[in-house]
């Protein structure tokens, strides 16, 4: 719902949202710090688990190329994407369902700004970004190890890094679209506590190299989460670009990269369509 004469400055509006959230976080500073500490604790626990796994095995899957350092690059990518989704979109998607349920969405509809923008960016959970920092540390250590090792030392080229950043962004787009679609369903369902758990369990699939699902009864899952709900592409595509588990790259890898681009654009369009369908069937909850 844009006004015709004066365009709102989206960037400025977003900066204000971010600033307000930061002020709020800083008001409860101890709580903020404890949240950061516990996120980092969770990261350490995961790192510990994978370090233990790599005590027993050299790679995840035979001939997949996901050795310890490359897998930790994969993990860092998961951490980047999840922390951004949790910082920027999770609190808003949660609130969206609540706005629908309580009728508070009326206020958002009246504002002279794109409603999806307003709903998606209103709150920022700054403490989740501590996991982004943790991801940076993991990525730095694994890149260092990869460049310093004796057999096949590896330093990614500037193009690979640039492409990596683009596809991390597209991965976030896919996650964001999925989340908007899930939370928009609360217009029809009233409430969707179970759907949030569902979100958690779907994204659980994205946390590992996708080829490990591609066998036996995993094939339908692999197909579904690559082509229908493309969560497997989210982390896998950027992580493969940077970590290059199979060297030289295969043509099918490039096909996957192309598909990830198409999938991200399509997801965003679908999420916008679902969002506006949801708004159209929204009936306020005024008394």
């Amino acid at each position: 719902m844009k006004s015709h004469d004066s365009h709102p400055h989206y960037w400025k509006v977003f900066a204000t949202f971010a600033k307000n959230s930061l002020i709020r976080d800083m008001t409860f500073r101890t709580n903020f710090i404890l949240q950061c500490v516990s996120s980092v604790g969770w990261t350490l626990m995961n790192v510990g688990f994978y370090l233990i796994l790599f005590q027993y095995t050299d790679t995840i899957g035979a001939d997949t190329g996901w050795d310890r350092d490359k897998f930790f690059l994969f993990l860092a990518t998961t951490w980047f994407i999840n922390s951004i989704v949790q910082a920027f979109f999770m609190p808003n998607a949660e609130e969206f369902s609540e706005l629908i349920r309580t009728g508070g969405l009326d206020f958002a509809l009246l504002k002279p700004i794109d409603t999806q923008f307003l709903i998606s960016f209103r709150k920022v959970d700054w403490s989740s970004l501590s996991n982004f920092a943790a991801g940076l540390v993991i990525a730095a250590i694994s890149l260092w190890n990869l460049s310093a090792r004796e057999t096949n030392p590896m330093v990614p080229s500037i193009y690979e890094v640039a492409l990596y950043i683009v596809f991390v962004f597209l991965g976030i787009v896919i996650m964001y679209s999925l989340m908007i679609c899930l939370s928009a369903t609360s217009v029809w369902l009233g409430r969707n506590q179970t759907l949030y758990n569902f979100w958690f369990y779907i994204t659980n699939f994205s946390r590992y190299p996708m080829e490990m699902y591609n066998r036996g009864w995993g094939k339908p899952l692999y197909g579904f989460f690559t082509f229908v709900v493309p969560v497997l592409l989210v982390v896998n595509v950027p992580a493969r670009i940077l970590a290059k588990p199979i060297d030289p790259r295969t043509p099918s890898e490039w096909l996957l990269v192309g598909w990830a681009f198409v999938a991200a654009c399509t997801s965003l369009l679908i999420s916008r369509w679902v969002f506006y369908r949801a708004l159209a069937s929204y009936r306020s909850a005024s008394s």
Binding site: L53, Y56, T57, D58, T59, I60, G61, A62, T64, T194, N197, F198, Y201, N204, F205, R207, Y208, P209, M212, Y213, R215, G218, L221
Partner: peptide, 21 residues
């Protein structure tokens, strides 16, 4: 639904044992 993460675990551990063996 709470069993869904076990699906991931099955594939993860299969991949690990596959690599070891």
């Amino acid at each position: 639904m709470r069993f869904l993460p076990i699906v991931t675990q099955i594939f993860l551990w299969f991949a690990i044992f596959d690599a070891i063996e």
